[in-house]
């Protein structure tokens, strides 16, 4: 009894000590969370109910920004562009990252060289990516079209034709999958060798080993990369902004480009905030739907 009663106050002193230091050391993030996340999110919601051009103080107009968007043709064009992009770029990006990782994980020579080549584009400054691709894809003297013209083949209007430009962005997107690829590669290397050996002994070919071992074992990471790709896809800004400025004929005017234009070119901070909140809610819904669906296709190893 005496031991217990004398230990309790000491323990709680320890707990108080831990709480004090825990909060103290976490305080940069805690304060930053309030300043740079909580407050901006709440004020963004408030601004979305106002008309605000930075010159005059915000003027409360209720749901007007949201209601106006329902009759805004530009907005629906942007939604179409963005959905096209998200629905295609996420699975295509994740699939290409996965296939590159599978290729790298097979028995090959110079693996680290290939890995470096596939990975590197994802860490190059986006301004360099856009400058270089703009030149490679240039209709007259780009590496590809100048070659085509020399062969007297028709040129490809990569960046100047509204129907070609989105697939062009997809190609560049596939070129920048290094991050997801490396995550897949780490996952593939974690798959226990015994599983493959056992399957081989049972007479499974490489194709069925891929379907029944590799894919299920990687499915949690496929989900992770899909979620990240969806979130990133909805926010796609720098590449279309730099490479095409939303064109030609506004075919690459994506949600984030439209939002940026409204905020910083037209100074419609209220409308931009309403757009941001719509984006936020759409992303949350998509993410939740993806996680819901994952129960059916993601395999979790029980350990």
């Amino acid at each position: 009894m005496a031991v217990v009663s004398s230990r309790w106050p000491r323990l709680s002193r320890m707990q108080r000590h831990d709480l004090f230091y825990g909060v103290l050391f976490a305080s940069p993030w805690l304060i930053g969370f309030v300043l740079w996340t909580v407050y901006p999110i709440i004020s963004s919601l408030y601004y979305s109910f106002t008309r605000y051009d930075l010159l005059q103080p915000p003027q409360f107009i209720g749901l007007t920004n949201y209601i106006n968007l329902t009759t805004d043709d530009d907005f629906f064009l942007v939604i179409q562009n963005t959905l096209w992009w998200v629905v295609l770029s996420s699975p295509i990006g994740v699939a290409s990252a996965f296939l590159m990782a599978v290729l790298l994980n097979s028995r090959i020579i110079a693996r680290s060289a290939f890995r470096a080549i596939f990975f590197f584009p994802s860490i190059v400054p986006i301004i360099v990516v856009s400058s270089v691709w703009a030149f490679v894809l240039n209709i007259q003297y780009g590496a590809i079209n100048a070659t085509l013209r020399a062969l007297e083949l028709p040129t490809i209007p990569f960046l100047s034709n509204p129907t070609v430009v989105k697939p062009t962005l997809l190609l560049i997107h596939m070129w920048m999958q290094g991050g997801a690829m490396v995550i897949f590669l780490a996952t593939l290397q974690e798959v226990p060798r015994e599983l493959y050996e056992a399957a081989t002994m049972d007479g499974a070919g490489s194709w069925s080993r891929f379907w029944s071992i590799t894919l299920p074992m990687c499915s949690p990471v496929i989900l992770f990369n899909m979620v990240m790709a969806f979130i990133g896809g909805f926010q796609n800004f720098a590449l279309p902004w730099l490479l095409t400025q939303g064109g030609p004929n506004r075919s690459t005017e994506f949600f984030a480009v439209f939002l940026y234009r409204n905020a910083f070119q037209y100074l419609r901070m209220g409308k931009a905030s309403a757009l941001a909140w719509i984006l936020f809610i759409v992303i949350v819904i998509f993410t939740v739907m993806l996680f819901r669906s994952s129960a059916r296709w993601v395999y979790y190893r029980s350990e």
Binding site: W29, F33, W36, T37, Y39, P40, I41, S43, S44, Y47, L54, I231, F234, Q235, A256, L259, Y260, A263, F264, M269, A272, S273, L275, A276, W277, L279, F280, I283, T287
Partner: peptide
């Protein structure tokens, strides 16, 4: 803290600029 990574930067863009 982890969940904040999911918040699109656009939501904070305008208010941060104003701050």
């Amino acid at each position: 803290c982890l969940a904040t990574m999911m918040i699109p930067f656009q939501v904070r863009l305008v208010p941060l600029f104003i701050i």
